[in-house]
């Protein structure tokens, strides 16, 4: 059924950006999430929803191989990015992360100037163009330019939480990624800042493929084209193992899901 629903989505449109096949992630000997098979198309927004501990962030962190940084983490199954296996020896995680950017749950600007926050990523990736122009462009794209243009040399930490998160988005798009991964980007923000970030996601969709993890179902239904619902089950040893329940167009997931579990979750009966 899982592969079926992912096919539903795949048939709908064109080029695939990311694809997973029977993805499993272990932390040490504990299975954290299993059997994730889904296709993510280019220039779409895909939301991952589900209760806590269902592995949606873990799957997200597989796409830019951030799990490599956790020594005990192990990934099984296949993930491809434009058809290339992410774990192939020819794929370098450092280079990959330039192409697949990430925005974290808690805004984490560097304790440096706003300008330097944007310029850092470009500099370490050997950007040779005009840095001032890149900083302005990135901040404009992240819809924060007007608020910070007069204080580019001030600390990124002096901004409000919502501004900091948009600065982090600007930082992520400054290195021209193709995909942006967002791990609950609004969970630390107030409703107005959340709205601004959501509007931003709508604009960024023209240019980028976006995968967003969210606890907020309204947010998933507002911003995403497709939604993946994850759930978790307890094993005999008491560990929680996450798995993909259903993946389909967002409207289908919220109005006419194939699985009862999904129906229960989106209608607020649990989770």
């Amino acid at each position: 059924m899982v592969s079926q629903s992912s096919n539903n989505v795949a048939n709908a449109s064109s080029e695939l950006a990311l694809q997973t096949e029977n993805l499993k992630v272990f932390y040490g000997s504990n299975l954290a999430v299993r059997d994730v098979t889904l296709d993510i198309q280019k220039n779409r927004v895909v939301a991952f929803i589900g209760p806590s501990g269902c592995g949606k962030s873990t799957v997200l962190r597989c796409f830019n191989r951030m799990n490599d940084l956790i020594p005990s983490a192990r990934v099984e199954g296949k993930i491809t990015f434009h058809g290339t296996d992410l774990h192939a020896p020819s794929v370098d995680p450092v280079q990959l992360r330039r192409r697949i950017g990430m925005v974290f749950q808690k805004p984490n600007p560097f304790p440096k100037s706003i300008y330097e926050n944007i310029a850092f990523g470009a500099r370490i990736n050997g950007y040779t163009g005009d840095m001032d122009e890149l900083v302005e462009q990135s901040l404009r794209k992240a819809a924060i330019w007007d608020e910070v243009k007069d204080k580019l040399q001030e600390s990124g930490l002096a901004l409000s939480g919502g501004q900091q998160q948009r600065l982090c988005i600007a930082r992520a798009i400054a290195i021209a990624p193709e995909v942006i991964l967002m791990d609950e980007p609004c969970s630390a923000l107030d409703p107005i800042s959340t709205l601004r970030v959501e509007e931003l996601i709508h604009e960024l969709k023209q240019q980028y493929t976006i995968v967003i993890v969210t606890h907020n179902m309204q947010q998933a239904s507002r911003v995403s084209d497709c939604t993946a619902f994850y759930n978790a089950e307890a094993t005999e040893t008491g560990n929680k193992v996450g798995y993909l329940v259903e993946y389909d167009e967002t409207t289908t997931i919220f109005h006419n899901p194939a699985e009862k579990e999904t129906q229960d979750y989106v209608s607020g009966r649990f989770g």
């Binding site: 940084l69 280079q95 990959l96 330039r98 974290f104 600007p109 850092f120 370490i124």
Partner: peptide, 23 residues
């Protein structure tokens, strides 16, 4: 030093040494 800064650096495609030196 908060780990979130290292994560931010790595997510921007920095190598380990670049993260250590700059952040």
């Amino acid at each position: 030093v908060p780990d979130s800064l290292r994560q931010a650096g790595f997510a921007l495609g920095a190598t380990r040494w670049q993260v250590v030196r700059e952040q």
